[in-house]
Write a protein that binds this DNA or RNA. Structure first.
Lengths: 339, 339
DNA sequence: ATGAAAGCGCTAACAA
DNA sequence: TTGTTAGCGCTTTCAT
């Protein structure tokens, strides 16, 4: 049954319809306390009949919680983030929460504005994938439960955090290349300077060291950022080939960059994996759809999203204390045609 | 400055701090009515100092609106939808609205549940990309402004709707193939039976008719759905080749299916575009990253999202009446290597 | 088991 | 220009 007014039917009206008080209706809905089975059944029947649903604004005002959370991501149109977002949404849907999607576009101002807005809307928690190195402390005004995903930007306070094992990822990628006989492994990393890119370089360095291969700074490249990352990566490899820089492998710390590198190699008729081997990072469409398909390091986005969601949920519901817990998820090597 | 309590500072407290009444504080914030410049300045200063932000639950309750909207999509991890979502988010962020992301997963029950939840949360509008052919009428209880995007599922009521020109898209794709000399054009469409897939078949038929090419039902294939669409498409073409079905082109009504078809053709060493030409639909990564790159029909997701957002916004703000307006956006042919 | 009533934080109508 | 106050729809304490 429908309510043709522009206004939802209220609890008070339901109460009148049932011949009971609003308190009783409330008790019937929320399974809270003393009410006879019969009254309850009757009330719920009427509620169903009139398609009543609570006014969450009123409920939130009263309870100081909103049954919704915020997810802040740098770029929702990026496969990596949209997959994480999907899992988060699914997790919280099942718990009865709605999720606000907040695209920061790597803009600190927008991040800040969103924190304020989410605060204002009384969200019960925030999942935060920051584009920034640091978050200013005053973002967190209320004590909103708060979990960082993938990046770990905040060093003043210790916040709970779930990441993929970037060091291990780049270690096993580098190790694979070394075991296949490569000695001069060129790297391409993003310019964002964020935590995960830093870790990826670390793993590369560790592997070289363990296998006694000297680190050559001339093989370390960074994307500058203004252009699309695969165009930039393509240009980098183009120039390396022009200058006859000696390398027998490329480890790009993102699949997009790997794809760009691959484009350059193909264009210059370099035999892959014969002459140059290639490894990417993420296991995104870029590595899967490329031809040849690109060997990559898979990050388990499902697990990442589920653990983060569960952690936040536990904190929100008081099941768990808010700690500075650091959860690190293992990564997997996916061997494909470029090695 | 920060508030260390778990509770936000309230307007009343701000009022006390300023030595004025809450009404005055409200007026200062909302630029509503009679207040002296000096008082206003002072109030805003204190507000800034204490980092006050309104309790939206209270505000929503009072004003019966929430400054937030809902976006219902079938699959946020799908590039097409995530690009649209990003643009919607950006549009509404600039207008001061937050957006709830609702992933229906093509599940009618979940769609319904989300409608109820959004209704409950007093969203000011809904953008709806349905997976369904029909929406049951009772989804819309309050008169929430409501715009359908891309699909047009609802035939009982006339709702405003923004779509890409699917008929034109498949027409120009088919026409291209015909002009390149193809006469036996195999099609692969999705099984979802949704409106856009239907239109795409229509455009194909129209083009054949205009060029006096007989329609052969044996060249019409549908994806069944359980498996990933590109695996299924690959299987379909595999079987066609086994059975020696005669065709000189494939028009897949999605890039994913086109990618699957391409995989089969390559595997079977069919010369592309020499022996068989291929066209996809969407201009997604699948067509751009494939090798050879796939000719496709580009849907302008930015325009789609912006027009829908603007339309919804105009209705929400009362700038525009809610009509059954049908906006159709032109599509573009992107020629690549498979033709 | 049920009802009456206070109050969550805000806006707006009315008074001063 | 500013203050007082009612009331938005709900939960919850306290009576009954």
């Amino acid at each position: 049954m429908q309510n043709d007014q522009n206004k939802k039917i209220s609890m008070k009206e339901i109460a009148v319809l049932c011949g009971v008080s609003v308190a009783t209706v409330s008790r019937a809905i929320n399974n809270t306390g003393r009410i006879s089975d019969e009254t309850k059944r009757h009330v719920l029947e009427i509620i169903d009949q009139y398609d009543y649903s609570a006014n969450m604004a009123a409920k939130s005002l009263r309870e100081s919680r909103s049954k919704s959370i915020g997810v802040i991501v740098p770029d929702i149109s990026n496969e990596f983030f949209s997959k994480i977002t999907l899992k988060i949404e699914t997790f919280f849907y099942e718990k009865g929460y709605s999720v606000f999607i907040c695209n920061s576009a790597n803009d600190p101002e927008k991040e800040k504005a969103y924190f304020k807005s989410l605060d204002s809307k009384l969200v019960d928690g925030i999942l935060f994938i920051s584009g920034q190195k640091n978050i200013s402390k005053d973002l967190i005004s209320r004590n909103i439960p708060f979990v960082c995903i993938d990046r770990y930007p905040y060093h003043e306070l210790n916040l709970p955090n779930v990441t993929c094992d970037g060091i291990m990822g780049s270690y096993i990628g580098t190790e694979l290349l070394i075991k296949k006989g490569c000695k001069r492994i060129l790297t391409i990393r993003s310019n964002t300077g964020n935590y995960s890119q830093h870790k990826r370089l670390k793993g590369y360095e560790n592997a070289l060291k363990d296998y006694s291969i000297p680190l050559d700074d001339n093989l370390l490249f960074s994307l500058k950022g203004p252009q699309s990352s695969y165009i930039e990566a393509e240009n980098i490899i183009d120039r390396c080939l022009e200058k006859n820089i000696d390398f027998d492998a490329i480890f790009a710390f993102s699949d997009r960059a790997a794809y760009g590198a691959l484009t350059s190699l193909k264009k210059n008729n370099i035999d892959i994996p014969g002459k140059v081997k290639l490894v990417g990072f993420d296991d995104s469409l870029y590595s899967r759809l490329a031809s040849p398909t690109i060997t990559t390091i898979r990050q388990d986005t499902d697990l990442l999203a589920n653990l983060s969601s569960q952690l936040l949920y536990d904190v929100m519901t008081g099941t768990k204390e808010l700690t500075n817990e650091q959860i690190v998820i293992p990564v997997t090597l996916i061997e494909r045609e470029t090695t």
